[in-house]
Amino acid sequence: MMDRVAGLGRSSLEVVGSLGRATQFLVGVLAGVPKPATGFPLLVRQLYTVGVLSLAIVVVSGLFIGMVLALQGYTILSDYGSEAAIGQMISLTLVRELGPVVAALLFAGRAGSALTAEIGLMKATEQLSSMEMMGVDPLRRVIAPRLWAGFIAMPILAMIFSVVGIWGGMLVGVEWLGVFEGSFWGNMQSSVDFIDDVMNGFIKSVVFGFVCAWIAVYQGYDCVPTSAGISSATTKTVVYSSLAVLGLDFVLTAVMFGDF
């Protein structure tokens, strides 16, 4: 019994310690703003790595999710003779929820795990240490551009996901199932509010982008510098990011859309 209590205490201390280290790490990264002349090219390179290279998976997933939404929505709405509202249903679902959430999950799986593995390997091969010994702060040079790139790329990816999803929904709903195109776009236009829906979805994706990028770079920087340690850190990045995104989504949805 006492062993279990002691084990629980140890685990709690580890979690609190890890949260403390992660916060300290974040403060260090945010405080060390790189010089624009050197920092901007590094940021652009990372935007390409975490953003542009994630486009394919985001576009393809968005397209299929939009198409599936149209199929499912049509089946349900046609029971009530409301298939004309399919555009409204697809756009609100994507802009408010699926766009930010699924794009963030895909981002964590593709770009987040890659960031963790890259930084972890740099640590294991002493590249971060050698940078420190050359008088170059790795938090500024390596971590900050990756964190900011994730923060910037994620909302853009979420927007692209929603746009492609709506287009996919239009292909199935209008071109295949024969919903009147005017109703599809007209209902969407009248029901989607820029502030309440688009901006709230955008804010969600900004929060998710920040959290996913933070988890990814921290796990890489804090990992045990062995192959097993890097593997564990990469797994943690995907698991923690997914849980954080889903948990935060509930909180943000309750705050933004909950009519209590």
């Binding site: 091969t125 002493e126 240490s129 050698s130 420190e132 010994m133 050359m134 008088g135």
Partner: peptide
């Protein structure tokens, strides 16, 4: 550290 150089094992 700009005045130091270090050759790492790896």
């Amino acid at each position: 550290r700009e005045k130091m150089g270090m050759l790492f094992q790896s």
